[in-house]
Simulated assay, not measured.
Amino acid sequence: MRAVRFASFGDPAKVLRVEDCPLTAPGPGQVLLRMLVRPINPSDLFTIRGQYGRLPRLPATPGMEGAGRIESLGPGVHGFEVGQLVVPLGVGGTWQEYLVANAAALIPVPAGFSERDAAMLIVNPTSAWLLLHEVLCIDPGAWLVQNAANSAVGRFIIRLARRSGVHTINIVRRRELSEELLAEGADVVLCERDPDLLDQIAQIVGARGVRYALDSVAGVSGSRLIQALGQGGQMVVFGAISRQPLSIDPSALIFRNIKLHGWWLAEWFQNANPSQVMDLLATLQPLVADGTLRAPIAAEYGLEEVHQAIAAAEQSERNGKILLVN
Protein backbone atom coordinates (compact mmCIF):
# COMPACT_ATOMS: atom_id res chain seq x y z
CA MET A 1 0.00 0.00 0.00
CA ARG A 2 1.03 3.63 -0.47
CA ALA A 3 1.80 5.74 2.58
CA VAL A 4 3.22 9.20 3.12
CA ARG A 5 6.22 8.87 5.45
CA PHE A 6 8.87 11.03 7.09
CA ALA A 7 11.99 9.88 8.89
CA SER A 8 13.04 13.27 10.30
CA PHE A 9 11.28 16.48 11.26
CA GLY A 10 11.61 19.43 8.93
CA ASP A 11 10.27 21.18 5.86
CA PRO A 12 7.50 18.97 4.43
CA ALA A 13 8.83 19.55 0.91
CA LYS A 14 12.11 17.94 1.97
CA VAL A 15 11.21 15.23 4.46
CA LEU A 16 8.02 13.66 3.08
CA ARG A 17 8.17 10.57 0.87
CA VAL A 18 5.47 8.37 -0.67
CA GLU A 19 6.46 4.78 0.04
CA ASP A 20 5.14 1.28 -0.55
CA CYS A 21 4.48 -0.31 2.84
CA PRO A 22 3.26 -3.78 3.84
CA LEU A 23 -0.41 -4.19 4.61
CA THR A 24 -1.08 -5.24 8.21
CA ALA A 25 -4.02 -7.44 9.20
CA PRO A 26 -6.21 -6.23 12.08
CA GLY A 27 -5.67 -7.91 15.44
CA PRO A 28 -8.20 -8.58 18.20
CA GLY A 29 -10.50 -5.60 18.72
CA GLN A 30 -9.15 -3.87 15.60
CA VAL A 31 -10.39 -3.11 12.11
CA LEU A 32 -8.64 -2.46 8.81
CA LEU A 33 -9.79 0.79 7.19
CA ARG A 34 -9.39 1.82 3.59
CA MET A 35 -8.81 5.53 4.03
CA LEU A 36 -10.58 7.67 1.44
CA VAL A 37 -10.34 11.37 2.35
CA ARG A 38 -7.94 13.27 4.58
CA PRO A 39 -7.89 17.07 5.11
CA ILE A 40 -4.57 18.85 5.55
CA ASN A 41 -4.71 20.81 8.81
CA PRO A 42 -2.14 23.22 10.29
CA SER A 43 -1.56 20.70 13.10
CA ASP A 44 -0.36 18.17 10.51
CA LEU A 45 2.20 20.62 9.13
CA PHE A 46 3.38 21.62 12.60
CA THR A 47 3.84 17.92 13.41
CA ILE A 48 5.93 17.27 10.30
CA ARG A 49 8.11 20.25 11.21
CA GLY A 50 8.54 18.97 14.77
CA GLN A 51 6.75 21.99 16.25
CA TYR A 52 3.56 20.41 17.62
CA GLY A 53 2.71 19.70 21.24
CA ARG A 54 2.76 15.93 20.75
CA LEU A 55 5.13 14.34 18.25
CA PRO A 56 5.16 10.78 16.85
CA ARG A 57 8.06 8.37 17.00
CA LEU A 58 9.97 8.39 13.74
CA PRO A 59 9.64 7.20 11.07
CA ALA A 60 5.97 8.14 10.98
CA THR A 61 2.97 8.76 8.77
CA PRO A 62 1.27 12.15 9.21
CA GLY A 63 -2.44 12.83 9.39
CA MET A 64 -4.76 13.38 12.36
CA GLU A 65 -8.11 13.39 10.59
CA GLY A 66 -9.89 11.52 7.83
CA ALA A 67 -12.63 9.09 6.86
CA GLY A 68 -12.50 5.55 5.55
CA ARG A 69 -14.53 2.42 4.99
CA ILE A 70 -14.04 -0.79 6.92
CA GLU A 71 -12.14 -3.32 4.83
CA SER A 72 -12.04 -6.17 7.37
CA LEU A 73 -12.79 -6.89 11.03
CA GLY A 74 -10.38 -8.36 13.54
CA PRO A 75 -11.39 -11.04 16.05
CA GLY A 76 -13.91 -9.95 18.66
CA VAL A 77 -15.13 -6.83 16.85
CA HIS A 78 -18.89 -6.33 17.03
CA GLY A 79 -21.19 -3.48 16.05
CA PHE A 80 -19.40 -2.69 12.77
CA GLU A 81 -19.62 -4.15 9.30
CA VAL A 82 -17.43 -4.32 6.22
CA GLY A 83 -18.00 -1.33 3.93
CA GLN A 84 -19.23 0.94 6.72
CA LEU A 85 -18.05 4.57 6.61
CA VAL A 86 -16.31 5.58 9.84
CA VAL A 87 -14.08 8.28 11.29
CA PRO A 88 -11.08 7.24 13.44
CA LEU A 89 -10.85 9.45 16.53
CA GLY A 90 -7.43 10.13 18.05
CA VAL A 91 -5.70 7.80 15.59
CA GLY A 92 -2.66 9.23 13.84
CA GLY A 93 -1.30 8.24 10.45
CA THR A 94 -4.31 8.84 8.20
CA TRP A 95 -2.15 9.78 5.18
CA GLN A 96 -1.98 6.21 3.91
CA GLU A 97 -4.19 3.94 1.87
CA TYR A 98 -4.98 1.51 4.68
CA LEU A 99 -4.99 2.03 8.44
CA VAL A 100 -5.37 -0.43 11.31
CA ALA A 101 -7.30 1.13 14.20
CA ASN A 102 -8.93 -0.01 17.41
CA ALA A 103 -12.66 -0.46 16.92
CA ALA A 104 -13.26 1.51 20.13
CA ALA A 105 -11.75 4.58 18.44
CA LEU A 106 -14.16 4.53 15.48
CA ILE A 107 -17.14 6.84 15.08
CA PRO A 108 -19.87 5.53 12.76
CA VAL A 109 -20.84 8.13 10.18
CA PRO A 110 -24.58 8.87 10.03
CA ALA A 111 -26.50 8.09 6.87
CA GLY A 112 -26.52 10.96 4.42
CA PHE A 113 -23.01 12.16 5.26
CA SER A 114 -20.60 12.30 2.35
CA GLU A 115 -17.09 10.90 2.70
CA ARG A 116 -15.75 14.47 2.56
CA ASP A 117 -18.06 15.79 5.27
CA ALA A 118 -17.14 12.84 7.46
CA ALA A 119 -13.41 13.40 6.93
CA MET A 120 -13.67 16.99 8.17
CA LEU A 121 -15.99 16.29 11.12
CA ILE A 122 -13.52 16.26 14.00
CA VAL A 123 -10.96 19.08 14.00
CA ASN A 124 -12.60 22.27 12.75
CA PRO A 125 -16.29 21.86 13.73
CA THR A 126 -15.42 20.71 17.25
CA SER A 127 -12.89 23.53 17.71
CA ALA A 128 -15.37 26.21 16.65
CA TRP A 129 -18.18 24.90 18.84
CA LEU A 130 -16.06 24.36 21.93
CA LEU A 131 -14.25 27.71 21.67
CA LEU A 132 -17.50 29.64 21.34
CA HIS A 133 -19.77 27.73 23.70
CA GLU A 134 -17.53 26.03 26.26
CA VAL A 135 -14.20 27.87 26.47
CA LEU A 136 -15.39 31.48 26.16
CA CYS A 137 -19.11 30.92 26.92
CA ILE A 138 -20.04 34.14 25.12
CA ASP A 139 -23.41 35.67 25.97
CA PRO A 140 -25.76 36.88 23.21
CA GLY A 141 -25.15 40.50 22.28
CA ALA A 142 -21.43 40.46 23.13
CA TRP A 143 -18.68 41.26 20.62
CA LEU A 144 -16.00 38.77 19.59
CA VAL A 145 -12.96 39.64 17.46
CA GLN A 146 -11.03 36.94 15.60
CA ASN A 147 -8.17 36.79 13.13
CA ALA A 148 -7.80 34.31 10.25
CA ALA A 149 -11.54 34.71 9.80
CA ASN A 150 -11.39 33.09 6.36
CA SER A 151 -10.13 29.80 7.79
CA ALA A 152 -12.50 26.88 8.26
CA VAL A 153 -12.69 27.50 12.02
CA GLY A 154 -13.11 31.24 11.41
CA ARG A 155 -16.05 30.69 9.08
CA PHE A 156 -17.64 28.24 11.50
CA ILE A 157 -17.28 30.77 14.33
CA ILE A 158 -19.06 33.35 12.17
CA ARG A 159 -21.97 31.01 11.44
CA LEU A 160 -22.32 29.71 15.00
CA ALA A 161 -22.07 33.22 16.45
CA ARG A 162 -24.83 34.45 14.17
CA ARG A 163 -27.08 31.61 15.34
CA SER A 164 -26.31 32.48 18.98
CA GLY A 165 -26.73 36.25 18.73
CA VAL A 166 -23.01 36.96 19.20
CA HIS A 167 -21.54 39.83 17.16
CA THR A 168 -18.25 39.21 15.32
CA ILE A 169 -15.43 41.43 14.09
CA ASN A 170 -13.50 39.37 11.58
CA ILE A 171 -9.97 40.21 10.51
CA VAL A 172 -8.61 38.94 7.19
CA ARG A 173 -5.51 39.55 5.13
CA ARG A 174 -7.38 40.01 1.84
CA ARG A 175 -9.91 42.81 1.63
CA GLU A 176 -11.77 41.12 -1.24
CA LEU A 177 -13.07 38.48 1.21
CA SER A 178 -15.31 41.01 2.95
CA GLU A 179 -18.49 40.49 0.93
CA GLU A 180 -18.16 36.72 1.11
CA LEU A 181 -17.83 36.65 4.90
CA LEU A 182 -20.58 39.25 5.38
CA ALA A 183 -22.86 36.96 3.37
CA GLU A 184 -21.99 34.14 5.78
CA GLY A 185 -23.16 36.18 8.77
CA ALA A 186 -20.18 38.29 9.81
CA ASP A 187 -21.15 41.62 11.38
CA VAL A 188 -17.90 43.35 10.43
CA VAL A 189 -14.92 42.38 8.27
CA LEU A 190 -11.67 44.37 8.57
CA CYS A 191 -8.34 44.09 6.80
CA GLU A 192 -5.21 43.07 8.69
CA ARG A 193 -3.12 45.55 6.69
CA ASP A 194 -5.06 48.67 7.73
CA PRO A 195 -2.79 50.88 9.89
CA ASP A 196 -5.83 52.18 11.80
CA LEU A 197 -7.26 48.73 12.52
CA LEU A 198 -7.46 49.29 16.28
CA ASP A 199 -9.21 52.63 15.77
CA GLN A 200 -11.76 50.95 13.50
CA ILE A 201 -12.49 48.33 16.16
CA ALA A 202 -12.85 51.02 18.83
CA GLN A 203 -15.35 52.91 16.67
CA ILE A 204 -17.45 49.75 16.34
CA VAL A 205 -17.52 48.57 19.96
CA GLY A 206 -17.06 51.86 21.82
CA ALA A 207 -14.71 52.92 24.58
CA ARG A 208 -15.17 49.73 26.63
CA GLY A 209 -13.37 47.66 23.99
CA VAL A 210 -13.97 44.09 22.90
CA ARG A 211 -14.71 41.50 25.60
CA TYR A 212 -13.61 38.36 23.73
CA ALA A 213 -10.89 37.48 21.19
CA LEU A 214 -9.80 34.32 19.37
CA ASP A 215 -6.26 34.10 18.03
CA SER A 216 -5.07 31.38 15.65
CA VAL A 217 -2.24 33.40 14.10
CA ALA A 218 -0.03 34.73 16.96
CA GLY A 219 2.75 37.15 16.01
CA VAL A 220 1.79 40.72 15.14
CA SER A 221 -1.82 39.78 14.42
CA GLY A 222 -2.45 38.15 17.80
CA SER A 223 -0.60 40.90 19.64
CA ARG A 224 -2.93 43.45 18.09
CA LEU A 225 -5.99 41.53 19.29
CA ILE A 226 -4.74 41.88 22.86
CA GLN A 227 -4.62 45.65 22.39
CA ALA A 228 -8.25 45.66 21.22
CA LEU A 229 -9.51 44.02 24.42
CA GLY A 230 -11.26 46.17 26.99
CA GLN A 231 -11.35 45.94 30.78
CA GLY A 232 -11.64 42.32 31.89
CA GLY A 233 -11.38 41.03 28.33
CA GLN A 234 -10.08 37.59 27.54
CA MET A 235 -8.29 36.05 24.58
CA VAL A 236 -7.86 32.39 23.73
CA VAL A 237 -4.88 31.37 21.62
CA PHE A 238 -5.56 28.11 19.78
CA GLY A 239 -3.14 28.36 16.87
CA ALA A 240 0.08 29.99 15.75
CA ILE A 241 0.09 29.79 11.97
CA SER A 242 2.47 32.75 11.71
CA ARG A 243 5.01 30.75 13.76
CA GLN A 244 5.90 34.03 15.48
CA PRO A 245 5.71 34.89 19.22
CA LEU A 246 3.12 37.14 20.81
CA SER A 247 4.17 40.52 22.16
CA ILE A 248 2.24 41.53 25.27
CA ASP A 249 2.25 44.89 27.05
CA PRO A 250 2.27 44.02 30.78
CA SER A 251 0.04 47.01 31.51
CA ALA A 252 -2.79 45.27 29.63
CA LEU A 253 -2.58 42.38 32.08
CA ILE A 254 -2.14 44.56 35.15
CA PHE A 255 -4.38 47.58 34.62
CA ARG A 256 -7.03 46.14 32.29
CA ASN A 257 -7.09 42.69 33.92
CA ILE A 258 -6.76 40.99 30.55
CA LYS A 259 -6.91 37.20 30.68
CA LEU A 260 -4.85 35.31 28.12
CA HIS A 261 -4.76 31.54 27.86
CA GLY A 262 -4.14 28.77 25.39
CA TRP A 263 -6.43 25.96 24.31
CA TRP A 264 -5.64 22.66 22.60
CA LEU A 265 -8.31 20.45 21.02
CA ALA A 266 -6.22 17.30 21.52
CA GLU A 267 -6.12 17.92 25.24
CA TRP A 268 -9.91 18.37 25.34
CA PHE A 269 -10.39 14.98 23.70
CA GLN A 270 -7.82 13.42 26.03
CA ASN A 271 -9.64 14.66 29.12
CA ALA A 272 -13.24 14.20 27.92
CA ASN A 273 -15.10 11.04 28.81
CA PRO A 274 -16.79 8.99 26.05
CA SER A 275 -20.25 10.38 26.79
CA GLN A 276 -18.97 13.97 26.47
CA VAL A 277 -17.44 13.15 23.10
CA MET A 278 -20.58 11.47 21.83
CA ASP A 279 -22.79 14.32 23.09
CA LEU A 280 -20.59 16.84 21.29
CA LEU A 281 -20.65 14.90 18.03
CA ALA A 282 -24.41 14.44 18.31
CA THR A 283 -24.72 18.23 18.61
CA LEU A 284 -22.46 18.85 15.62
CA GLN A 285 -23.77 16.28 13.19
CA PRO A 286 -27.01 18.12 12.27
CA LEU A 287 -25.01 21.35 11.91
CA VAL A 288 -22.70 19.63 9.45
CA ALA A 289 -25.68 18.11 7.64
CA ASP A 290 -27.43 21.47 7.20
CA GLY A 291 -24.24 23.18 5.99
CA THR A 292 -23.57 25.35 9.05
CA LEU A 293 -20.36 23.46 9.80
CA ARG A 294 -19.50 22.35 6.27
CA ALA A 295 -16.17 23.69 5.01
CA PRO A 296 -15.62 24.64 1.37
CA ILE A 297 -13.09 22.52 -0.53
CA ALA A 298 -10.40 24.38 -2.43
CA ALA A 299 -8.72 21.40 -4.14
CA GLU A 300 -8.13 17.67 -3.97
CA TYR A 301 -4.91 15.73 -4.56
CA GLY A 302 -3.87 12.09 -4.58
CA LEU A 303 -1.42 10.74 -2.01
CA GLU A 304 1.33 10.74 -4.63
CA GLU A 305 0.74 14.49 -5.06
CA VAL A 306 1.32 15.25 -1.38
CA HIS A 307 3.98 17.90 -2.05
CA GLN A 308 1.66 19.84 -4.37
CA ALA A 309 -1.14 19.46 -1.84
CA ILE A 310 0.94 20.90 1.00
CA ALA A 311 2.10 23.80 -1.18
CA ALA A 312 -1.56 24.56 -1.88
CA ALA A 313 -2.50 24.22 1.80
CA GLU A 314 0.12 26.81 2.77
CA GLN A 315 -1.12 29.39 0.27
CA SER A 316 -2.81 32.27 2.08
CA GLU A 317 -4.93 33.03 -1.00
CA ARG A 318 -6.81 29.74 -1.00
CA ASN A 319 -10.49 29.57 -0.01
CA GLY A 320 -11.30 26.19 1.47
CA LYS A 321 -9.67 22.97 2.63
CA ILE A 322 -7.08 20.96 0.76
CA LEU A 323 -7.88 17.24 0.74
CA LEU A 324 -5.79 14.14 0.10
CA VAL A 325 -7.96 11.54 -1.60
CA ASN A 326 -7.50 8.05 -3.05
Rank of each mutant, 00 (worst) to 15 (best):
A313T: 02
A240F: 00
F269V: 10
G66I: 08
S8Q: 13
G27P: 03
P110K: 03
V37M: 06
L182V: 09
V4T: 08
R318Q: 12
P62I: 11
Y98H: 10
L246Y: 05
M35W: 05
M235S: 03
I258D: 03
C191V: 14
S43V: 07
P140S: 10
R57D: 12
S164I: 02
R17K: 15
I122F: 08
V325L: 07
R318W: 12
Q234K: 06
A128G: 04
S242G: 00
A118T: 09
P195K: 04
I40R: 04
C137R: 15
I169D: 01
A272Y: 15
E19D: 13
E304F: 07
A105T: 14
I122Y: 09
V100S: 01
R211E: 12
I158Y: 02
P108M: 07
G141F: 04
E314C: 06
N102Y: 04
G233E: 03
T168C: 13
D215M: 00
V18Y: 14
V82P: 06
D249L: 06
G302Y: 14
T292H: 03
A148W: 07
V236I: 13
F269T: 10
D44K: 12
L260Q: 10
Y52G: 00
S8V: 12
T94W: 09
L214F: 06
V188F: 05
R34I: 00
G232Q: 11
N147D: 06
V220I: 14
L253Q: 01
F113Q: 05
S127T: 15
P26C: 13
S316D: 15
L73G: 07
V77A: 10
G74Y: 03
L265C: 10
P286H: 13
R224A: 05
K259W: 15
P75K: 07
P56A: 11
Y212R: 05
P195A: 01
P56G: 07
G10L: 08
L45I: 15
D117V: 09
N170W: 10
E184C: 04
L132D: 02
V306F: 04
A295C: 05
W268G: 08
I158T: 12
A213K: 03
A266G: 15
I310Q: 10
F255D: 15
D290G: 15
N319W: 11
E314H: 00
T61V: 14
L121W: 02
H133A: 09
A152Y: 03
V277A: 13
A299N: 12
Q227K: 14
D139P: 01
L229E: 09
I322N: 07
L132A: 03
D20C: 05
A311Q: 13
W143C: 13
A142G: 10
G27Q: 12
T94P: 09
T168K: 03
E176Y: 01
A252C: 10
A7F: 02
L293W: 01
K14I: 02
R162V: 09
P274C: 11
R162W: 11
E305K: 09
V188C: 03
A252P: 11
N124D: 08
D11R: 11
P75Q: 05
A103E: 02
F80P: 11
R162M: 12
I158W: 06
P195N: 09
G320E: 10
A298W: 01
I122A: 03
V166P: 00
A266V: 07
L130K: 12
L58H: 07
Q276M: 11
P26E: 03
L132T: 04
S127R: 08
T61S: 09
E304R: 09
A149R: 05
H78V: 06
E304A: 14
A228N: 06
W264R: 12
A104G: 08
G320I: 01
A207D: 08
